[in-house]
Design a binder for these strands. Sequence first.
DNA 1: ACGCTCACG
DNA 2: GACGTACGTGAGCGTA
Length: 938
Amino acid sequence: METKFGKGCHLHLIDGSAFIFRAYHALPPLTRKSDGLPVGAVSGFVNMLQRYVDGNNGADAATHVAVIFDKGSHTFRNDMYDLYKANREAMPEDLRPQIPLTRVATKAFNIACEEMEGFEADDIIATLAHQARDAGGRVTIVSSDKDLMQLVGDGVEMLDPMKNKRIDSDGVVEKFGVGPNRVVDVQALAGDSVDNVPGAPGIGIKTAALLINEYGDLESLLDRAGEIKQPKRRETLIEHRAQIELSKKLVQLDCDMTLDFGLDDLEVRDPDPEVLLGFLGEMEFRTVTKRIAEKLGVEAPVIEAPAPVATDLATPAQVGFDANAYECVRDAAALQVWINRIRERGYVAVDTETTGLNEMIADLVGISLCVEAGQACYIPLTHKSASSDDLFGSDDLAECQMDFAECLAMLKPVLEDPAVLKIGQNMKYDAKIFARLDITVAPIDDTMLMSYAMNAGLHNHGMDTLSERYLGHTPIPIKPLLGSGKSAITFDRVPVDDAVKYAAEDADITLRLWQQFKPQLHVNHVTTVYETMERPLVPVLAQMERNGIKVDRDTLSRMSNAFAQKMAGLEAEIQEMAGRPFNVGSPKQLGEILFDEMGLEMPDGKKPSTGKTGAYSTGADVLEDLATLHDMPRRILDWRQLSKLKSTYTDALQEHINKETGRVHTSYSIAGANTGRLASTDPNLQNIPVRSEEGRRIREAFVAEPGKVIVSLDYSQIELRILAHVAGIDALKQAFLDGIDIHAMTASEMFDVPLDEMTPDVRRQAKAINFGVIYGISGFGLARNLRIPRSEAQGFIDRYFERFPGIRNYMDDTIAFAKEHSYVQTLFGRKINTPEINAKGPQAGFAKRAAINAPIQGTAADVIRRAMIRMPAAIAGLPAKMLLQVHDELIFEVNEEAADDLITAAREVMENASDPAVKLDVKLAVDAGQGANWAEAH
DNA sequence: ACGCTCACG
DNA sequence: GACGTACGTGAGCGTA
């Protein structure tokens, strides 16, 4: 039969499998409303096809087009090499049933749809491309698969559909360092980990291109391999010749297949509206059906079922942000309309505006609500009126604001309604504001915590970051509204018109983020993490923060005075020794005094080290070394300790005592630390001194009310216990079971010293090693920590791994997992992303150690989170309050007579916190103490 | 704003 | 073979 395809014709070949996988991963797991059939990938596939069709016009438009699919997983390449594509992940269960539907979709668009048993889509594409080229036509391969680059040239180009970037011969050279005709040679050498093509070990694309360019082609290279100068390279090529030749066969596409159709069968045809819309209707794709119907100029068929929540989530509205579209709610009637909409929906995004960042002090200024992307309102409540003649503004309320009490009375039932989900970004803040107004917000979702569950380690989870990353929208900055420095104003002085735009947008953003994140939790397998370890912590922490802890101002004040006196004495001595006055608190000046003016030298003979700024380093370790030569460094160390205690603790803590409660209220960041730990800020109550005697006395200022006591319960060696479990170290497990001193046991094993002959120093070294292991030990790090030669430290580590080989296996396995997945996991499924794990350079070292540490630190963090979440119910009957968390410790305040009962109840919860999700091989032990203050309780 | 130093687990 | 190194945080100060 005569072929009409020829000069002037333009064939587009679409890589169907690439479309499918892209669609699958880009979209949430949508299901068809009527029967739950998974259709997310089909929906994405249809959208991509539609976008392709829309873009296919103008001079460059295709005259012929086909979508090419893979058929089956076994191809002739598997017969050559049974490991071909062997490390591909299995197809996800919910994608499998969608595969045939993508064929139906293609045909519904009236586009040719081709596949062939035993061949990959790439082979069909290769064959068609050659046929079309030989017939004098042009070809565009719509794919970004680098395996197809060998086909480029002579009128054949590729088009990356996502980047909308054309790739011609030059593009191929850019990617592979050689022209299209030599791409297979480079691939044969470099191999491909994705397809499991072995290639030559140790040779990547760069080296491969270099070799091919030098020797012309692969065959010449292999024949003349003996001439290669680099011995390693030469041997590799000679030794792995057969493997390289096999690799070439694997990557070489078959461009000479016998096809049961011709180019003329691929002519572009208009779709039959009835068929296409029929298919889309069957899939229940409402939005795209409507759009395509409009395009085709026919009426859209009616698709049953109203818009339920799931469908809203499925197709996040593609509405732009319009700050002018937000409503300002000024009276009860307007608010009632919003409340009706909220009740109809069953969910609402909420945001509060207040006079400050400290939610224990800040007052509510206004509330924003959003029920649908782009549809948000702001309810100003206590904005002050602007008055032009008064620089400080008036204290009169601005006009046309809803009555504060009336508004709260109307919203309270909604905010507390179990049937209405309240969505927020960092809900703990808003919940605390509302709690002070006697409104208990529940149930909630929190977009910050959703992001944290999915993306810990990738970026922070503030609204600005999330909006920019996931919505492509930069929120209105608050700075211009409030100003900065001395002239800064509070939000109640922001003009209402400006406030509406800013505040309502926050609720709008939050709702859109929620629409995007909610279905993604499942995809990322972190729904359980979010629902059991993130979200439920919000009310628990909110309550703890509101409880606060009583801090005795007089105690702190007396200590501050004592510190000041001692510091003054030390300062005089120091300056006397220096020979001139200088700022003892300035590391820069101190360095110059020590090393330049006094001429001290490091005892190890090395040059004094410097920081990034070039100033001498004067850290405690340096001064400790110098203290062997001179009396001044010791004085500096003492002065620094006092200075730290005074400025960071005894002075600063007084400023944090709340005027109304007389207590200090910290704030915990739930999504701050990548590992799952909490972080305490404003003030940080997780780093109150304890290690030094002088510092520990600061804890005496943290007191119980009269008639009450402070109770402290802390997990004993929780991280080492978790290590024993995850690494499966029997000796460690047994030691914990027997209640043996774990560091002494380690020392005994490593240094062959019987337990009863253990010296404190040997034990100290073993302890350092135990902790080093948790941190991703290195000879250098241990050497520095123990102040021993590096070789000796390395010897200890070698001995440790020899004695506990399971630890090394755990480390190796963890790093291998991180390298493959770019994340690690805790025992409870928390994910910690490790994006730098495959980087080169020093970042990789950091990433490795972080990856080793994260599952251990993170599992411990998960355990105490679980305990905290269960704690309120467990102590509900007791006159006790949970006040603080310090990573492995919980602090309570309880009526004196109930202290023992509290310890019993809280210990029970803490020791069993991993149940039933994880069965630990090692029992968790909890130590408890009580007293009039934190120092006594610890 | 950033680096240094140091407090905690 | 060299490189840089203990893990995770927050706050206050000096310096730019």
